[in-house]
Amino acid sequence: MNHIKKHLNLIIQSIKIQTMDKLEVALAFTFITLGIILQFTITIIFFKAIYLRSATIGGWDVNQVYILLGTYFIIQYISWSTYIRGFNKISRFIENGELDLYLSKPVNLKFFLSYRYIDPIFIIPQITVAIGLLFYGVSQTNADINILSYLFILACAFIIHFSLIVIISSINFFTIIRQVDHLHNTIFKLGQYPITIYKGFTRLVLSIIIPIAFIYSVPARAMVGDLSVKEILATIGITFIFYFISSLIWNLGLKRYESAHG
């Protein structure tokens, strides 16, 4: 109980610090918000341009792709406003020795990093446009909507996404990668498209080895009630497996770091 209370207190403090910080740079906030809306608009224009030339992409119509994109942006924005920022800083923390400071604190480092740089302000416009797009796609489709199934699969998607971020960030314990944020951003961007466009080995990789399919395409299909029980079970299985693997690699990396920096 004390453990939860301690973390809750730290989360509140992190939110307070980040809120104060952002309010001080209100103008920057305005420009970044505009930038996000612009990037979002450009993505929509891109897909609109594609659908002008093709009725479907990988068998998905434009409304299904809006649901997919809405899901993609929800995951991207929430993860960037919460856990990604902390994990992206690992290479810097290792280089400047700050990681030792965090390791000496009586908190779980993985959990601490996932909320240390939580951003409650920037997420507001971001999540609004993402949910807006999701519901626009939902309102335009003729399929039977299954929100409960979507929310459940989305929760699994977040765990898989978090696990992949942890795995990629753990590489830093072995060798420093400065552009790690660009690297995982580019990998996750492959999920902006329906998984069905990918064929053969690539599809296998994106379904099992880096299971982007389960992060974006599967939740979007869950929303339109297109998932079989087998696929739901597979999602749950993949979620557990990846969380387990990520914990294993993280602990291995930490051990290696601690033994090297004694």
């Binding site: 466009i197 990918y198 690539t202």
Partner: peptide, 24 residues
């Protein structure tokens, strides 16, 4: 190495481009 990672990132983006236009 940073420059090479930059190109690796550009290469990864090409995966979706290839399959997307193949589909279209």
């Amino acid at each position: 190495l940073d420059t090479l990672v930059r190109f690796l990132i550009a290469l990864i983006s090409l995966i979706s481009v290839f399959y997307l236009w193949n589909d279209i």
